[in-house]
């Protein structure tokens, strides 16, 4: 696993926004990597910086008001932060595909579906109209759109939410990118349609060996789909590891909190859910110590004062928490037993 080629490497990224209220530090020293053919899950609540980080990879955040103040994003060895607009334009869509959360608003309502898919390769020289159409239809079939000839001529409002999301996936796949970023692709869909889309993504990974970054707040989606997981909170990475390490060997109180606050099918009715009390940190003036400290039930004095160092628990499993310090009390944060029903 560890020997796999790294497609993307984010190193100590710091990204902030100028606002009327001051500077919001949305991403504070985030590092993670994506390897060839893997599905990396990024989980966290709204405002934790998971989407902003992912959008930095394609430089989709408006700059200004956004600005980088440190770190680098290496995509196939090239630093995205230093790229010119021309280089970025070449990379967007062709090297990296992006699937947005809301398929209802991210398609152009005045363009037919076929035209929107063809737009991606309109610059390609030496393709006839018929060839372009054939290519678009092939991609539509690949993502499971039924009745492609009819859909090709339809407008987005004539399609259901699930179908629109398939069109979005088709557009992201047109130029066979080596990686796709999915920003909550199933949040606005119904469960049975969500299951179809997740199956489609797994199938595409099998067939095309595409690397996928899956941003979501749904731990169920993470468990079903991902190979490795990054847990983010307050603009920082709290814990990262393989999906089994995160679920069965939880090492950060925030990850634990996320898991115990959801009602799952096997939750007993008489148990009270344990919500994470309080609300997320104010990123205008981020706390000096661990961002989760004010909401953490195990917080110690040092948690408020100094940011914790990242600790390696295994080859893949890393966490930033003072509880891992040799002098800290030992706390068992594991929620589930491996392979338990």
């Amino acid at each position: 696993m560890a020997e796999q080629e790294k497609i993307l490497e984010i190193k100590n990224l710091v990204f902030s926004f100028h606002t009327y209220g001051g500077v919001v530090q949305a991403v504070r020293n985030v590092s993670y990597e994506l390897r060839k053919g893997e599905i990396l899950g990024i989980v966290g609540e709204s405002g934790c910086g998971k989407s902003v980080t992912a959008q930095c990879i394609l430089r989709l955040n408006p700059e200004p008001p956004g600005f980088f103040s440190g770190g680098e994003i290496l995509f196939k060895g090239q630093d995205v932060v230093k790229m010119s607009q021309k280089e970025l334009r070449k990379m967007r869509g062709t090297e990296i595909g992006f699937i947005f959360q809301d398929p209802m608003t991210s398609l152009n309502p005045t363009m037919r579906i076929g035209r929107q898919i063809e737009e991606v390769f309109q610059d390609a020289k030496g393709m006839s109209r018929a060839e372009k159409k054939e290519k678009a239809l092939n991609i539509m079939r690949m993502v499971g759109i039924s009745d492609v000839e009819k859909r090709y001529r339809q407008y987005p409002h004539e399609l259901s939410g699930g179908m629109k999301q398939r069109v979005m996936i088709a557009i992201a796949l047109v130029s066979q990118p080596s990686m796709i970023i999915c920003d909550e692709p199933t949040t606005s869909l119904d469960v049975t349609i969500e299951a179809q889309i997740l199956d489609l993504l797994l199938d595409l990974r099998e067939r095309l060996d595409t690397s996928i970054i899956m941003i979501t707040h749904d731990l169920g989606v993470i468990a079903r789909l991902c190979d490795r997981v990054v847990v983010m909170y307050g603009g920082q990475v709290m814990e990262t590891g393989t999906v089994r390490e995160i679920f069965y060997d939880t090492a950060h109180p925030y990850t634990h909190g996320l898991m115990s606050s959801i009602a799952s099918l096997d939750t007993d009715k008489n148990t009270v859910l344990t919500p994470i009390s309080g609300s997320p940190p104010d990123l205008f003036s981020p706390p000096a110590g661990c961002p989760f400290a004010p909401r953490c039930e195990y917080a110690m004095k040092i948690c408020y004062e100094r940011p914790p160092q990242e600790v390696h628990l295994s080859e893949e499993h890393r966490t930033s928490c003072w509880l891992q310090h040799e002098l800290a009390p030992k706390v068992d944060l594991r929620m589930r037993k491996e392979g338990a029903k």
Binding site: E194, A195, Q196, A223, R224, F247, R336
Partner: peptide, 19 residues
């Protein structure tokens, strides 16, 4: 179709997908 937050369980489960 519900994704369960347990990797081993959710991947080994037999699922009925409706088309």
């Amino acid at each position: 179709s519900i994704p369960i937050a347990d990797p081993d369980l959710t991947r080994s489960r037999k699922r009925i997908t409706i088309k």
